[in-house]
Amino acid sequence: MNNALLPPLFQAPELKPLVESVDFDEWQNVVGSSLGEHRSTLRTPAKHAATNLLDALREWEQRSAPCRGDKRERITTVRRRTYVADARQWMRHHLHEPCGVLQVAAAVEVSPRTLQYAFLQELGHTPMAELKRLRLRYLRQLLQDPDHRTVSIAELMAQTGLLASGSTAADYRRYCGESPRETRQQTGPGYQNR
């Protein structure tokens, strides 16, 4: 397996023998099924670690499928995965900007309908749902970062492109299992309650 195709999570030298020796499809099935079975009983940080692992596995699979010589895949499937990967990459770089499906589709150079279809087929949700998920994940990272302890939660929400409102806090609670304030309080001493 070409190491450049691996997400950073799997590029550690100590993981190289494991990554090269394991059949990816088998590995994804084992990891995915075991995480799926136990996801409801995992504590919040473990849930996020499990979600991050599954995201990394999916991204790895999408990027490495053409190199693995998987001849069963249709060209439309490869294109669809490329659209989703490109759109997610663009979204990550533009989290703080207000945008909609039209802007994301234009950035990826596909029609909005094609982009919607690709996301629904590959991820099971819309591009805007994915953008919100990426923004909530980034907000969580900022809340856990000690360098951002003095910045208000509302300001951090604005930095991630989210509205500082009760509905955003409710979405965060649904995604993370705790409020933004609870996440911040777990970062340790020095937290200023703003």
Rank of each mutant, 00 (worst) to 15 (best):
Asn2Lys: 14
Asn2Glu: 13
Phe10Trp: 03
Pro13Gly: 04
Pro13Asp: 08
Glu14Ser: 12
Leu15Val: 06
Lys16Glu: 13
Leu18Ala: 12
Val19Leu: 09
Glu20His: 06
Glu20Asn: 11
Asp23His: 12
Phe24Ser: 11
Phe24Gly: 08
Asp25Lys: 10
Glu26Asn: 14
Glu26Leu: 15
Trp27Lys: 08
Gln28His: 14
Val30Gly: 01
Ser34Asn: 13
Ser34Pro: 07
Leu35Gln: 06
Leu35His: 09
Gly36Ala: 02
Arg39Pro: 01
Arg39Lys: 10
Thr41Leu: 10
Arg43Gln: 12
Pro45His: 03
Pro45Arg: 03
Ala46Ile: 04
Lys47Gly: 02
His48Lys: 10
Ala49Ile: 04
Ala50Glu: 01
Leu53Ala: 09
Leu54Arg: 07
Leu57Cys: 07
Glu59Arg: 12
Trp60Phe: 10
Ser64Phe: 00
Pro66Lys: 06
Cys67Tyr: 14
Arg68Gln: 05
Arg68Phe: 02
Gly69Ala: 01
Glu73Ala: 12
Arg74Pro: 00
Thr76Leu: 09
Thr77Ser: 09
Thr77Glu: 09
Thr77Ala: 09
Val78Arg: 15
Val78Asp: 08
Val78Ala: 11
Arg80Ala: 13
Arg88Gly: 05
Gln89Leu: 14
Trp90Cys: 01
Trp90Gln: 02
Met91Asn: 01
Met91Gly: 02
Arg92Ala: 15
Pro98Lys: 10
Pro98His: 08
Pro98Asp: 10
Val101Gln: 03
Val104His: 01
Ala107Thr: 04
Ala107Phe: 04
Ala107Cys: 02
Val108Trp: 02
Val110Lys: 08
Arg113Cys: 07
Thr114Gly: 10
Leu115Cys: 03
Gln116Ser: 15
Gln116Arg: 15
Gln116Pro: 08
Tyr117Asn: 13
Leu120Thr: 12
Leu120Tyr: 14
Gln121Thr: 11
Gln121Asp: 11
Pro127Ile: 00
Met128Phe: 03
Glu130Asn: 02
Leu134Phe: 05
Leu134Met: 15
Arg135Cys: 05
Arg135His: 06
Leu136Arg: 01
Leu139Trp: 09
Gln141Thr: 15
Leu143Trp: 00
Leu143Thr: 06
His148Phe: 12
Thr150Ala: 11
Glu155Tyr: 07
Leu156His: 04
Met157Arg: 05
Thr160Arg: 03
Gly161Val: 04
Leu162Lys: 04
Leu163Glu: 14
Ser165Cys: 08
Gly166Pro: 05
Gly166Ala: 07
Thr168Glu: 02
Ala169Gln: 15
Ala170Thr: 11
Ala170Lys: 13
Arg173Asp: 01
Tyr175Gly: 05
Cys176Thr: 14
Gly177Leu: 03
Ser179Met: 08
Glu182His: 04
Arg184Asn: 03
Gln185Thr: 06
Gln186Cys: 10
Gln186Lys: 14
Gly188His: 00
Gly190Lys: 01
Gly190Phe: 02
Gln192Met: 13
